[in-house]
Computed example of a mutant assay.
Amino acid sequence: MAKKAEKTIAGQAREFRAEARFQRVSPQKAKLVLDMIKGLRVETALTTMMFSKKRIAPIVEKALRSAVHNASYLSEEQGFDLDVDNLYVKMAVANEGPRLKRIRPAPMGRAFRYQRRLAHIIVTVAEKHTTPKVDGTDATASATAGTKPAAKKAAAAKKAPAKKAPAKKAVAAK
Rank of each mutant, 00 (worst) to 15 (best):
Y114S: 07
F80E: 02
E76A: 02
K29N: 06
S26F: 04
G79K: 00
E77I: 00
L40P: 00
D85R: 09
K174A: 14
D35R: 12
T8C: 08
M36W: 09
I56H: 00
G136W: 05
R99M: 15
K3C: 08
K168S: 07
L46C: 07
V171S: 10
T130D: 12
Y114N: 05
A92R: 00
K159C: 01
R24A: 12
E6G: 14
R110W: 03
T130C: 03
F51C: 06
L32F: 15
K168D: 08
H69Y: 10
A111R: 11
T130Y: 11
K133N: 11
L40R: 12
K158V: 03
A45T: 00
R113V: 12
K53L: 13
P149N: 03
S66L: 08
F112A: 14
A151E: 12
A18K: 02
P107Y: 09
V68S: 00
N70K: 05
V33W: 02
F51P: 02
L118M: 15
Q12Y: 09
A94P: 00
R117Y: 15
P132D: 12
V33A: 11
I37E: 05
K169P: 12
F22Y: 11
G79W: 02
R110E: 05
K29R: 10
D138G: 15
K128N: 13
Q28S: 08
S26V: 05
L82S: 01
